[in-house]
Nucleic acid binder design. Structure first.
Lengths: 335, 335
DNA sequence: TTGTAGGCGTTATCAG
DNA sequence: CTGATAACGCCTACAA
């Protein structure tokens, strides 16, 4: 169509409606001190010229971008998609735009993104990235950008957090399995290198219960791939026929164990029980359905934005918000 | 720590290093015409003062934001998470930041977001939203923002697209089922209100093959919920014991049919076959694995950003890129 | 109620 | 190689 308008500015609108810049500015910012008549006149020429204010110039002048930066390690997980969903919903409701800073599970990249968050001039940041520690976060907040950290219990003048309570529940579950009357089983933890802070915390808790109960703790080295984990356990169960209880990080990995067990004629959950730490909606669609330790990431996202929004307005009272995980018993475990 | 620096500007850096604005600007933009000596001096005070350029001011001055806007209906689907993953990966590699405009499956909201894309001054936009038609897209591009549309074959001076080839494959598959020697079955389409453009196109193709082969086409009204679909089919299969072939939009809905069939002692795929149009990684984790018509959304995302990047630089040659879906035969169908 | 003028932090064009 | 100075598009006292 070749019908491209050059971007029309507030100045042209002013001239075209026979008023000054200031008046147009007042109209687009819905300030009260303008006659209805001139307001109408200005609005008319705005519509006629197709004028759209430049968020850039506005931000520069007001020092507010209505933008919030979100740092995540990758967009490619269901639970992060859920988080994003919660974030975007509440952000939209509050008139915030979300800018995505993806770090690819890489400390260097993470710090580069942190810098970019600062230069980008967001009104606030939400950080969900295990690579970044307290020290890195402090750097951002020293540039005066209010920050909410997810999955890390740290707070500061400009820093709030939402963190997860998993350990207590995990210990309780494992202790029960190790000591129950019937179906007592050895518990095995699926270890991953670079599985992140949450996984490490879980593993630590796992060892602690075992120590407390004076039992031997087992762990198996896996990685974040369904296929490789499945292949591994397919061989594993050929020689390990005794009943066992397995703890995996994701439902996809839990499913790998389950499928491998079934392929070796082991019954789930009678012989092999599997618990997933993180559970997505797929956990209760699969057969058998997979027990998990649930935290609603959509809620986490919503809470994070609400907290950030309050922090920006200097009225965040509770700087740390804990999400307690809930045991969702499904078919992959006995009780 | 209360150690907040007020944002330091290029002006302060200039004064502190005894040079002018212009020189500092040259340094941070890595221009060549600066002595190594002054360059070092400036860089030193930049580090000392912790100066970060304001992307805002830069954008205003250069008229480029290095931001691309992405419009999506929701972040809460696995295939959109995949798309996002592809988008963010390539965006990062090209130095672009991604701003998320989420529309919540709502035409009004979608148009509001479109406006916002314009005011936000992004360098380009990627639109994956069924609510937006050719007319709406034209509006954006009339503001001179290069746009790539996903899942809609439209192009224009400033508009490119990546669209999907599903119909041909679907017709082929359905025709085969309707006419094969053994296991001939009736085919039923899971209809959804507001299922989006893709689903409508598929349904149309579905009816067309049936008409062509002079067969009766069946469809069942469902919605985008696993639970409700499952409940429906659980009752349905109590009275419909004859073999059948079902086509669902998502793997979660396909799984609902499969689970309901099994709960009614119908065998999958012998009695009941199920094909999912969209397939995520979960499709080949579930048991039985679910046949689907695969398009790699990660690739789609990567391609979209690459095309947009070219479009921005005025050297996009192929304005329309077609992704042909591939039949991934798994355990939920016979062949 | 409306207009004038200075400022937000950079870049870019000229001179020097 | 470096330094003024005018944009970039808008907001906001302060005046009128």
């Amino acid at each position: 169509m070749g019908n491209f308008k050059d971007r029309v500015t507030i100045y042209e609108v002013a001239k075209a409606s026979g008023v000054s810049l200031a008046t147009v500015s007042r109209v687009i910012n819905k300030q009260s001190n303008v006659t209805q008549a001139t307001r109408d006149k200005v609005n008319a020429t705005i519509a006629r010229l197709g004028y759209k204010p430049s968020a850039l110039a506005q931000a520069l002048a007001t020092n507010r971008t209505t933008n919030i930066g979100v740092i995540i390690p990758s967009a490619n997980y269901v639970y992060i998609a859920n988080l994003l969903y919660g974030l975007t919903e509440v952000a939209r409701a509050n008139g915030f735009l979300i800018s995505l800073f993806v770090t690819s599970h890489n400390k260097e990249e993470a710090n580069r993104m942190l810098e970019k968050v600062i230069t980008t001039h967001v009104d606030g940041a939400i950080i969900f990235d295990d690579e970044l520690d307290e020290h890195d976060i402090a750097k951002v907040s020293s540039y005066n950008v209010p920050t909410i950290v997810i999955n890390n219990n740290i707070t500061d003048e400009k820093v709030g957090c939402v963190y997860f309570g998993y350990e207590h529940l995990l210990k309780k579950i494992v202790a029960a399995v190790l000591t129950r009357e019937k179906n007592k089983k050895e518990v095995t933890f699926l270890h991953m290198e670079n599985g992140g802070r949450l996984l490490s915390r879980m593993e630590k808790a796992f060892y602690e219960v075992h120590e407390l109960l004076n039992k031997k703790a087992y762990s198996i080295m896996t990685d974040d791939s369904y296929t490789r984990t499945y292949d591994y356990f397919k061989r594993y169960f050929k020689t390990h026929r005794n009943p066992g209880y397995f703890i995996a990080y994701r439902d996809s990995l839990a499913k790998a164990v389950i499928n491998a067990a079934k392929d070796n004629d082991l019954k789930v959950p009678e012989d092999i029980e599997v618990l997933s730490i993180i559970g997505t909606k797929y956990a209760h669609i699969m057969s058998p359905t997979i027990s998990s330790m649930h935290i609603d990431m959509i809620e986490v996202g919503k809470t994070a934005v609400n907290m950030l929004s309050a922090l920006i307005k200097h009225n965040l009272t509770e700087k740390a918000h804990k999400f307690e995980s809930v045991y969702e018993k499904r078919e992959s475990t006995l009780d």
